[in-house]
Write a protein that binds this DNA or RNA. Structure first.
Lengths: 252, 252
DNA sequence: TGTATAAATATGTCCGGACAAATTTTCAAT
DNA sequence: ATTGAAAATTTGTCCGGACATATTTATACA
């Protein structure tokens, strides 16, 4: 069919097969709602054992693309977006890993009073001076753009900026280590909003995609804002799972 | 060791093994940070093949309990499988108030196997029959459209449907009261996605607005899905705040 | 025609084995 | 003591086969 299906691919066989199947799903060869070929059919087509086919199908099921049912077959339940991957976070910790302050390619550093849109996340401290960082945040492999990140740093800690070049952990940890000011609590807000032109360009997504903006405000024990991070995730790649406490749902 | 490890258990072997290992992790036999016995050791201990041991370890890794590394071994990275995150009740309750299962104007009721897109939120129970409710959810004043809501009810509880006319509280409470089946835990997932034509029309928003979809799965103590609610919020009106625990952001 | 039963189909579980790839350990050379 | 290469260890990938279980389809019977 397409040239991408004929040539020899790198990586394990099951990955080649799952990639091919995912490609066909995205292409419409296997429509949403339709059944995939049976495992034995796939064995024959790709000339591999059933074990390897099952590994490929298992990964597709894990990615939420297909649903497997004993006796019935594997049904396509979702077509992958053109980006081609589905990122699902299963816990808050994964969100933090996912959006950790690591692998941040800093493109721009400025200082002064943040413009109005950014000032909104600063509340009553909007008029003060801040150190502003903007850049693209990449995944652990350093390749895939995860989100467009803006970090506002209280100017009292401006001296840490030169250390960003060798930063391996979260920025707030750098502040804690250097200044002994401990983060007391973190407020997080999630909202959806139109994506900025800059973020869309950096992330390689259409401006028709909405951004999921995750704002985290780090405060010390006296309620002073130490750090604010604003991450614009492409809406088509954002998913955030958590388990709710029993007593929390009391009012639901 | 304990009595629970000696007797013959039901279910597949890999599940028995992963349950046993999970129990030992929770008990402290395998401490967090320590390495599990090697696959071959486990083969010998349980008298099973390496394939079955690997299936058990794979599930533990999926649950976030262990981390497997080629050449090194499987390391325990967490003692609690099911999230167990504690959020401040104040802010989460705001979400629940915001999207409470009240003030639901039911427009359509159908029964049967949900179509593929909805089936995705049902996981391995997608093929079963459900009672499907769709309608517009209004705010407390009964005026402002909050979200487009789809509710999937386990057919075992189909008899509660006529009572919706006089429903004043959450649907899951109706089930708890009528059937004595208690909700044990609630899984919540937030993601952004294009809004459906139907939801856009009902909510009076443009289709260019993306929806923030909040899926909540209500499970009983045996892991059976009782109820699933899928709420499509207009992205331009959605905001979700919470306060993060200090220990939760530990990895950030 | 409708229904209950049997057969066919498709995925789930489990075994045995083999080699590859990544990591750790051992040990010799400097 | 330090370095570097070889060996041992451990998980990753892949094959072949067998039977179990769930679903669908075909068949026989009423």
């Amino acid at each position: 069919m397409t040239s991408t299906e004929s040539g020899a691919k790198p990586g394990p066989r099951y990955a080649q097969v799952s990639d091919t199947l995912q490609h066909r799903i995205a292409e419409g060869t296997y429509a949403v709602g339709a059944l995939l070929p049976t495992e034995l059919d796939l064995c024959q087509e790709f000339g591999i054992s059933r074990h390897t086919v099952r590994e490929a199908l298992r990964r597709l099921a894990e990615a939420g693309l297909v649903q497997r049912r004993q006796g019935s077959g594997s049904q396509v339940i979702s077509a992958s977006p053109k980006g081609g991957y589905v990122h699902t976070m299963h816990s808050l910790n994964e969100l933090f890993q996912y959006a950790a302050d690591t692998h941040l390619r800093v493109d721009r550093i400025s200082e002064g009073v943040p413009p109005a849109p950014l000032g909104a996340v600063l509340g009553d401290q909007a008029g003060q001076h801040w150190v502003i960082l903007e850049g693209l945040r990449l995944d652990a492999a350093g390749r895939l753009p995860i989100c467009w990140s803006t970090v506002l740093i209280n100017q009292a800690f401006a001296a840490i900026v030169p250390d960003f070049a060798t930063l391996t952990g979260a920025i707030y940890r750098l502040i804690e280590d250097r200044y002994g000011v401990m983060v007391d609590r973190v407020e997080q807000n999630i909202r959806a909003m139109p994506i900025s032109a800059e973020a869309a360009a950096e992330l390689g997504v259409s401006r028709r995609i909405w951004a999921v903006q995750v704002v985290r405000r780090y405060l010390d024990s006296e309620g002073r804002l130490m750090l604010v991070s604003v991450n614009d995730h492409p809406g088509d790649r954002f998913s955030y799972s958590m388990q709710l406490q029993k007593d929390v749902r009391g009012r639901g």
